[in-house]
Design a binder for these strands. Structure first.
Lengths: 352, 352
DNA sequence: TTGAAAGCGTTACCAG
DNA sequence: CTGGTAACGCTTTCAA
């Protein structure tokens, strides 16, 4: 008795194998094609008998509904675009994993776009529109015009740790300024007086907000003479930044406020290795983000951790809601970071 | 004079905005729909006059060809699935970024799937088949049966740092065994005699290969009495593993061979903090992967770095080739890791 | 509950 | 070079 259900194996590897369609299933099951379609939907109206026959036929043929064809007729691709920059993923691989996983729980697939350079943005937008994604979450900066392009196509967008001034947009972000203000005030409360700041790349809005927050708080404390150097978020640039501070500042600062953890770690190493300083006895160094290495014993950073889990959950649910209900008005959700008092800063206990 | 090119704005936010189709463009340009289609293809045969009129009309309407519809007729979605595990992305965020970027240079989009648990694999496969991806690169383990399912659909697959025993598959991987053998022989050459091994999770094929490589080499050197403890690749588990070694072994090892860098860092911290050991003077610790933190001054691991750039490039080009030419025979590409002699191990100079 | 037929927006084929 | 028409594989009326 010959079993035909491996018929495709024989076809071999040459021509693109012909996949079973709903018509094939219908024929084998002796029902109409519409019936097959219905069986593979949620609110299907199909008798148990038919359902069984269809399912068994489908099984035999290895049939799977073609999501592409479905998307064409339903006007819903069930795909969303996620736009990240190299930076985002390098320092928060967690974000992407979480977004993907949560979307998939809603039956939504992620089409991934990574931006190497700002100038690639337009082409990425073009692609994402061609692919008829149902929504977008972007962890990259968009111009008002670019945002307009997506909006005109009727696609909801969520900004992740970004926003668009002067425009009503949906966003999920960690309150960078608040976090920096806390860090600075902790340091000041513990007697630090001479501050230096290591900022991130000039084109990073996140870095801008952090630096602004720190400066504001310092100003409120009447600390005006603050040296600012900048890096590119990398470990090496953190080391270089610290070296520059030592080089250019008269005397040492007693606190260095760094725009992210990775650079803060670079600062710690440079302080210890090249300058023979003890952290935190001789100098306090604080970061931002709460990445894994910040918790390594050698660093134990005082920092503010972004609540990635809650933020990505918020992004996903906001986007899904807006896909299902395009009329929803814009919303901004701002999360406070988790405050971590690590050993990299000399802080007094403030148990009230 | 009223400008109609913002007509959609008015429609507002309610009904899913109707996007311009090739028919709309055709009408406005006064040509046939087929003509529009041709203009938006590569080897188009269209007069300059027509091309201009079509392009200007398309521009005015904000027209973009619908990639979904195109995929339906051409039988090519121009999407590939990338399957990663949480682990993969957490410790190699670089891999995903590189894959995505390189694919996009070939006009191919990445549909991302992340696996939290092994048991999710089948549903991921189901999804990816429904979406008619043109190919798959998987950094997660697949069973022979699962591989068969994809193969039957005529979709080429590249295994990333994985393979499938007893089966002809395409794979790109770093030679884990070779790397471990080098690490062990360096340590042995430098006089280390008492070894301990920290392996990764039991279900990680990569960890298995690494451990096997280390054990083989040790055996060749007639070092048989090796304690093996295991962790889950995390920093915390590295610390726990080192504690367990100290606890269970009589006397200390002089070298600990760890299955990845993150756990190795955990071992270093545990050795220093809890056991007051100097690394490498009292004990040598080596890792594997070459992740960023391995280069932080506090650790400076001796390790083997996976050549992520070359590996992802290989994966992309192998997959694209096989999408374009399904008849191509399977190929395995094995890359040697970059050997890094860091300060975490007491190694003698071997300048010949 | 079931089937026939009309699209969805493209590309592909074939005359002109 | 150009336009008409038939797919692609599905969902969705609308009758039966």
């Amino acid at each position: 008795m010959n079993k035909p259900h491996k018929q495709q194996q024989e076809t071999g590897r040459q021509s693109p194998i012909k996949r079973a369609t709903s018509y094939d299933v219908a024929e084998l099951a002796g029902v109409s094609q519409s019936a097959v379609s219905r069986v593979f939907q949620d609110g299907a109206s199909a008798s148990k008998d038919m359902r069984d026959r269809v399912l068994s036929a489908a099984n035999k043929l290895g049939y799977r509904p073609n999501a592409i064809a479905r998307g064409l007729i339903t006007q819903r691709s069930n795909m969303v675009a996620v736009i990240i920059t190299r930076q985002t993923n390098l320092y928060y691989p967690e974000v992407l994993v979480q977004l993907t996983q949560r979307f998939s729980e809603h039956g939504v697939r992620v089409l991934l776009f990574t931006l190497e350079h700002e100038r690639d943005t337009d082409s990425v937008l073009d692609q994402l529109l061609q692919y008829q994604v149902d929504g977008v979450v972007t962890a990259a900066t968009l111009s008002a015009e670019q945002m307009g392009t997506i909006e005109n196509a009727g696609i909801p967008v969520i900004f992740y740790n970004r926003t668009l001034p002067e425009r009503l947009v949906n966003s999920v972000r960690c309150d960078q300024e608040e976090g920096e203000r806390w860090l600075v005030s902790e340091l000041a409360n513990s007697g630090h007086k001479r501050f230096a700041i290591v900022s991130g790349p000039a084109d990073s809005s996140v870095s801008m907000e952090r630096t602004r927050g720190a400066l504001q708080k310092l100003k409120e404390l009447n600390i005006d003479d603050v040296m600012i150097v900048s890096g590119d978020y990398s470990y090496a640039s953190g080391r270089a930044a610290f070296a520059e501070i030592v080089d250019r500042m008269e005397g040492l600062p007693d606190a260095v406020v760094v725009a992210n953890d990775v650079m803060a770690i670079g600062c710690v190493d440079e302080a210890r290795e090249t300058n023979n300083l003890r952290v935190p006895e001789d100098i306090s160094i604080v970061g931002f983000d709460g990445v894994g290495p910040a918790r390594y014993a050698a660093y134990d950073l005082t920092t503010v951790r972004q609540p990635v889990g809650r933020m990505s959950e918020a992004a996903v649910s906001m986007l899904i809601e807006r896909i299902e209900n395009p009329g929803l008005s814009p919303e901004k959700r701002v999360f406070s970071g988790d405050r971590i008092r690590g050993g990299s800063a000399r802080l007094v206990d403030d148990e009230a």
